[in-house]
Protein backbone atom coordinates (compact mmCIF):
# COMPACT_ATOMS: atom_id res chain seq x y z
CA UNK A 1 0.00 0.00 0.00
CA UNK A 2 2.92 2.36 -0.10
CA UNK A 3 5.25 2.99 -2.97
CA UNK A 4 8.47 4.43 -1.49
CA UNK A 5 11.66 4.96 -3.43
CA UNK A 6 15.26 5.41 -2.16
CA UNK A 7 17.15 8.60 -3.06
CA UNK A 8 20.37 10.35 -2.05
CA UNK A 9 20.24 13.73 -0.26
CA UNK A 10 22.09 16.38 -2.32
CA UNK A 11 21.20 19.53 -0.35
CA UNK A 12 19.35 20.35 2.86
CA UNK A 13 17.40 23.64 3.32
CA UNK A 14 15.49 23.64 6.62
CA UNK A 15 12.67 21.08 6.38
CA UNK A 16 13.28 20.42 2.68
CA UNK A 17 15.97 18.42 0.93
CA UNK A 18 16.91 18.05 -2.71
CA UNK A 19 17.02 14.29 -3.34
CA UNK A 20 18.47 12.42 -6.33
CA UNK A 21 16.44 9.29 -7.29
CA UNK A 22 19.04 8.04 -9.68
CA UNK A 23 20.48 9.13 -13.04
CA UNK A 24 19.96 12.80 -12.13
CA UNK A 25 16.23 12.66 -11.41
CA UNK A 26 15.82 15.02 -8.48
CA UNK A 27 12.90 16.38 -6.49
CA UNK A 28 12.37 18.48 -3.37
CA UNK A 29 11.39 16.27 -0.43
CA UNK A 30 10.04 17.15 3.04
CA UNK A 31 12.38 15.74 5.70
CA UNK A 32 10.59 16.75 8.90
CA UNK A 33 9.96 13.09 9.83
CA UNK A 34 13.68 12.11 9.80
CA UNK A 35 17.12 13.36 10.85
CA UNK A 36 19.28 13.22 7.75
CA UNK A 37 22.47 14.79 6.38
CA UNK A 38 23.74 15.47 2.89
CA UNK A 39 25.08 12.29 1.27
CA UNK A 40 22.79 9.92 3.16
CA UNK A 41 20.03 7.88 1.51
CA UNK A 42 16.35 8.33 2.42
CA UNK A 43 13.21 6.39 1.57
CA UNK A 44 10.65 8.79 0.05
CA UNK A 45 6.87 8.23 -0.02
CA UNK A 46 4.53 10.79 -1.70
CA UNK A 47 7.18 13.51 -1.39
CA UNK A 48 8.15 12.91 2.26
CA UNK A 49 11.18 11.09 3.66
CA UNK A 50 9.93 8.30 5.97
CA UNK A 51 13.25 6.64 6.87
CA UNK A 52 16.99 7.10 6.58
CA UNK A 53 18.41 4.08 4.76
CA UNK A 54 21.36 2.29 6.32
CA UNK A 55 23.96 1.75 3.57
CA UNK A 56 26.03 -0.71 5.53
CA UNK A 57 22.82 -2.62 6.17
CA UNK A 58 22.19 -2.81 2.44
CA UNK A 59 25.65 -4.22 1.74
CA UNK A 60 25.26 -6.48 4.76
CA UNK A 61 21.96 -7.78 3.38
CA UNK A 62 23.49 -8.69 0.04
CA UNK A 63 26.49 -10.31 1.72
CA UNK A 64 24.20 -12.26 4.08
CA UNK A 65 22.06 -13.47 1.21
CA UNK A 66 25.00 -14.71 -0.77
CA UNK A 67 26.26 -16.49 2.30
CA UNK A 68 22.92 -18.17 3.05
CA UNK A 69 22.38 -19.03 -0.59
CA UNK A 70 25.81 -20.47 -1.14
CA UNK A 71 25.75 -22.23 2.22
CA UNK A 72 26.49 -25.93 2.19
CA UNK A 73 22.85 -26.60 2.93
CA UNK A 74 22.18 -26.46 -0.74
CA UNK A 75 25.15 -28.55 -1.80
CA UNK A 76 25.27 -31.71 0.37
CA UNK A 77 28.36 -33.02 -1.42
CA UNK A 78 30.23 -29.85 -0.37
CA UNK A 79 29.42 -30.58 3.21
CA UNK A 80 31.12 -33.93 3.03
CA UNK A 81 34.08 -32.25 1.40
CA UNK A 82 34.51 -29.68 4.21
Amino acid sequence: MCLAIPGRVLEVRGNTAKVDFGYGTTRDVDISLVDVEVGQYVLVHVGYAIQVLDEEEAEETLRLWREILNSSESRPQARRGE
Binding site: I5, Y23, G24, V44
Partner: peptide, 13 residues
Protein backbone atom coordinates in the same frame (compact mmCIF):
# COMPACT_ATOMS: atom_id res chain seq x y z
CA UNK B 1 15.13 3.01 -21.66
CA UNK B 2 17.07 5.94 -20.24
CA UNK B 3 18.03 5.66 -16.59
CA UNK B 4 16.41 9.00 -15.80
CA UNK B 5 13.10 7.77 -17.30
CA UNK B 6 13.28 4.54 -15.30
CA UNK B 7 13.92 6.34 -11.99
CA UNK B 8 11.34 9.09 -12.64
CA UNK B 9 8.72 6.48 -13.64
CA UNK B 10 9.49 4.49 -10.50
CA UNK B 11 9.10 7.67 -8.43
CA UNK B 12 5.61 8.29 -9.81
CA UNK B 13 4.54 4.64 -9.81
Amino acid sequence: IRGVVRSAAEMLG
